[in-house]
Amino acid sequence: MARGWFLPLAVTLGLAFLYAPILSLVVFSFNESRLVTVWGGFSTRWYGELLEDAQILGSAWISLKVAFFSACLATIIGTLGAFVLVRFHRFWGRMLLVAMLTAPLVMPEVITGLSLLLMFVASETFLNSHPLTSGLFPGRGVVTIVIAHTTFCAAFVAVIAQSRLRDMDQSLEEAARDLGAGPVRVFFDITLPVIAPALVSGWLLAFTLSLDDLVIASFVSGPGASTLPMVIFSKVRLGVSPDVNALATIMIAIVAVAVIAAGLLMRRSARQRTS
């Protein structure tokens, strides 16, 4: 179907549109000049400054922690939710669970962030108003961000887990049950290993979404717990800054290496399966 010049040209322009801004970030991260778009010679000084920036390093560590715990919790809750919806057809509140697992996918981040923050503030006020429970609220910070991220990431994990659970061969579970395994054992010995690849991709997606989120974290975080996107946003808002270019280049390099490695691994396993 390669006819004419229109399609190849459109694709070339489209890919240029996708990659040109990213490439210019990388190029100007090696720029000596502070003026980000005027070339002043090759230098790695922004990388040096970045590595000494305690605020960026600290927030990167917070972001990684938040993303790790949110991804783990979201995988557990999303998988359980998907399992319940696919395997149990009648129970009280099924429609409610369907709605609560799909709504976060279309909910604007500003609404999710604001409503969760108001809930946290209200429960903090409520807990502190009674002497017995005062001080129980953990304070806004890493814990509240993890809760918020878990809630919206669980919906994405549930989508992936649901489609895998629907596709899997249920006779395996029936066979295990016929051989005398209880439902819990069937889940851990049969269902979980079969859907594991979907859970890995769900976990990775949740980790990325959490690492990337600015809006929800800005709402629910408290003083002293800034994630990496929050720090970058406050820097970038004032204008272009060269150390952010260096940071972007490092992140792009990590992602590129990870994606290419994953692609090679998948290709190898596909080849082993066919041979």
Binding site: L15, L18, Y19, A20, P21, I22, S24, L25, F28, V36, T37, T208, L211, D212, L214, P229, I232, F233, V236, G239, V240, V244, N245, L247, A248, M251, I252, V255, A256, A258, V259, G263
Partner: peptide, 22 residues
């Protein structure tokens, strides 16, 4: 396909920031 998906895996905020420089 990989080339289309790849930018999606890099930070959303940094991709918007890249356009500021542009």
């Amino acid at each position: 396909l990989l080339m289309v998906i790849l930018p999606f895996w890099t930070s959303f905020l940094l991709r918007v920031y890249a356009w500021m420089g542009f």
